[in-house]
Amino acid sequence: MRRRLISVEGAADGYGVVCDADGVVDAAATRARREDLRGHRGELPVFDKGPSLAEIIDRCEEETGLPAPRPPVNVRKAVRT
């Protein structure tokens, strides 16, 4: 949050961390938010790899306020052509 990699809303929704615009964490509100999240999410899968790269790139600007990075280039393929 302080490094602007996630919004205040993203911190609360994705990690259950409640903080102000300066990144100062409210410990009591964070505990309450995490309890609320646990109560609504159900059982977690054993391993969750998260969304696809395409989904992450599509949501990048909305979630971070920063433009999406360009996908990596296949170096071997680029050298051969």
Rank of each mutant, 00 (worst) to 15 (best):
Val75Cys: 01
Ile56Trp: 10
Asp26Glu: 02
Asp22Cys: 12
Pro69Arg: 04
Pro51Arg: 14
Arg38Asp: 07
Leu37Met: 06
Gly65Glu: 13
Val46Ala: 15
Gly14Tyr: 05
Gly14Val: 10
Asn74Asp: 15
Leu37Asp: 01
Ala54Met: 06
Arg76Thr: 12
Val75Ile: 13
Arg41Asp: 02
Asp48Gln: 13
Asp26Met: 06
Arg31Cys: 03
Ile56Cys: 06
Arg4Val: 03
Asn74Lys: 12
Ala68Cys: 11
Thr30Trp: 07
Glu9Asp: 12
Cys19Trp: 06
Glu43Thr: 13
Leu44Arg: 14
Ala54Val: 11
Ile56Tyr: 08
Val79Gln: 09
Pro71His: 02
Val46Trp: 09
Val73Ile: 15
Glu55Lys: 14
Asp20Leu: 11
Leu53Phe: 15
Val18Tyr: 03
Gly14Asn: 09
Asp13Leu: 13
Lys77Gln: 14
Ala28Asn: 05
Val18Thr: 05
Arg3Asp: 12
Arg34Ser: 03
Ala27Gly: 06
Glu61Thr: 08
Leu66Ile: 09
Asn74Ala: 12
Val73Met: 13
Leu5Ile: 10
Ile6Gln: 09
Ala28Tyr: 02
Glu55Pro: 07
Asp36Cys: 01
Val46Tyr: 08
Glu63Gly: 02
Lys77Arg: 15
Pro72Lys: 02
Glu9Trp: 01
Ile6Arg: 13
Arg41Tyr: 01
Val17Ala: 04
Val46Asp: 14
Asp58Ala: 14
Asp13Glu: 15
Val17Asn: 01
Leu44Gly: 13
Lys49Gly: 13
Tyr15Gln: 07
Gly14Ile: 09
Leu53Cys: 12
Ala78Cys: 03
Asp22Arg: 15
Leu66Phe: 15
Gly39Trp: 00
Arg4Thr: 07
Leu53Arg: 14
Ala11Asn: 04
